[in-house]
Design a protein around this nucleic acid. Structure first.
Lengths: 310, 310
DNA sequence: TAATTAATACTCTCAATGAGCATTAATGAG
DNA sequence: CTCATTAATGCTCATTGAGAGTATTAATTA
């Protein structure tokens, strides 16, 4: 029962990073090689911890501090191609939020909107037409191709939960489930037996688009109970800019008055006193985040009918 | 910018498991070596994925299927003792839920209540007296020993967020934060410079108590939006047994009527028709879970002021 | 038949959420 | 100077869910 840990066969540790920034209301992710790869590199042994290794490596590359880092997932499911099959790759992926972007217009590395990879995830101007127009019709034959009635029912249910009906009942957190569904149905080029005519959305090499989906899903879930979007904003910003930023991440439009009510109720920001003089109309007041509240906001809501302890 | 992945120096992959079961309203965790270790073992290269490796290994040991598996965290922060310092250990930890327990009364492996390791986490019969009686008084000097006023304020805030005032405002999800706070304050034996007289609660070797805290925290958070406690219950159970099970995990008492209202509203269970004939009074009806709803229940609630997409 | 245990039936309050309508404020273009 | 333009506010309203409490009914066994 207690097998003493022994060295495995040859193993390479690889770090993958989903680095997110925001510019002009677009959620950006750092990519390499013409947008086909996420930044990744070997884990250098001189670093005491994985996070410090990642942080050092990213900051050296981008010349900007990494505001927030969070581990995403560890995969160990593939072998290094070209090796004799015993060289296993363990890839540990991270989500990182950063405020500034690298040299603009660079070709490699390049910041790209994540909606280029997941066009069906952008519901900011209403339901993504891609879903009702293309995805649901393409998924229908896959549902019908289920082995038996039970399998078909299960597939149907998965489609409904992930994509809804294409017009309402959209859950923006299910980014990974949606990608995996399309993968299984062979509708993305990365699939094992891809359809000749995949669904729109740029693919990536290896499992990098899957890792990106994991990162987006994690971030979308996180902003609901922790104000991590702090790390993506400039030091001063208007409330409308903040709203647009959250909308860019969540992929959904928000109700302006309610958004302000919420931000206000949580005491997340304070006015700097200054205003913008952007365009024609009334200038917007500038705000900054109140760093102090970050700690307080560790509180989360519960969905269980708790009793007050006696 | 794109360093080609290369094999690291010698690396050993180790799997750690937090295996949870429930008996007699106690949340149990599988331990080894007189309760000082979590089950762990090397990652065998013949397994295609990490999860299948863990699953196979656990099921071989316990002769019971593993109902639910979830990755917890990957640590790579220590070196194998006795090696030349280049042999790095990457430990990947998992949470697993299982329905049945291994041979009862066995000494090793042994199922133990997790509240032996974290006695302050059990608020089922009211605030854990340990907190107001011992922990808060012992943390006070640590707060006062902060380097400067700002540091002291930050420490004070961390104590308040993690432990509340010891009587109310308890957030049961912050298991890991609380353990880490005690660790930093030197109040657990595992700390780097432990106090001569640590706080009650059984320690573990290496960082295993930390991993256990991570698992408990994850499970407590999860049951609020996904009915994973399915996997811990016998095939048939009464609603009161179910309530006691959830209370055991959450470490808090619940309001009976509201608990039933919630279970009912979600359509999680259906009556089997049978009843128990346990003790004196009215027998309780037996229920079973409706497996069908697991998929549907992927829906989560949002805390952002979303607008209905146009 | 009474004690015992489990299960129900309701009610009430409070806070949060999603939504809508209307109005005020401060600019720059002309 | 005034007017279109953009941003910000002020309110109201309905609905829902959570937390809590009181009282009553049901089915057993000692």
């Amino acid at each position: 029962m207690t097998p003493p840990p022994a060295p495995s066969d040859a193993v390479a540790i690889e770090l993958n990073a989903v680095l997110v920034a925001l510019t002009a209301n677009q959620p950006l992710v750092l990519t390499l090689e013409d947008g086909t790869l996420l930044p990744s590199g070997p884990f250098a042994t001189e670093h005491p911890t994985l996070q410090s290794g990642l942080r050092a490596w990213v900051e050296r590359q981008t010349n900007h501090p990494l505001g927030y880092v969070e581990q995403l997932y560890t995969f160990a499911d593939r072998n290094r191609p070209g090796s004799d099959g015993r060289q296993r790759v363990v890839s540990i992926s991270y989500l990182g939020l950063t405020r500034e972007r690298l040299s603009a217009g660079a070709r490699d590395p390049e910041w790209r909107s994540w909606y280029r990879y997941f066009p069906w995830e952008d519901w900011r101007t209403g339901p993504a037409p891609l879903i009702a127009g293309t995805i649901l019709p393409r998924l229908a034959p896959w549902v019908d191709a289920g082995a038996d009635a039970g399998n078909r029912r299960e597939r149907q249910q998965r489609v409904e939960v992930s994509f809804g009906d294409g017009r309402e009942s959209w859950n923006e957190d299910l980014v990974l489930q949606r990608y995996e569904l399309l993968y299984e149905a062979g509708l993305v080029p990365e699939a094992k037996h891809p359809a000749a005519d995949p669904v729109p959305g740029m693919p990536m090499r290896h499992d990098h688009r899957r890792i990106l989906a994991t990162g987006i899903a994690r971030l979308r879930a996180k902003i609901k109970y922790r104000p991590v979007f702090f790390e993506l904003m400039p030091p001063e910003f208007t409330l409308l800019q903040l709203q647009r930023a959250v909308e860019a991440l969540a992929g959904r439009p928000m109700h302006k008055q309610n958004f302000r009510r919420l931000i206000d109720a949580q005491g997340l920001v304070e006015p700097t006193g200054a205003s913008t003089a952007e365009a024609r109309g009334r200038p917007a007041k500038l705000f900054r985040f109140r760093r102090e509240v970050v700690l307080e906001r560790a509180v989360v809501g519960s969905k269980l009918p708790l009793s007050r302890p006696i």
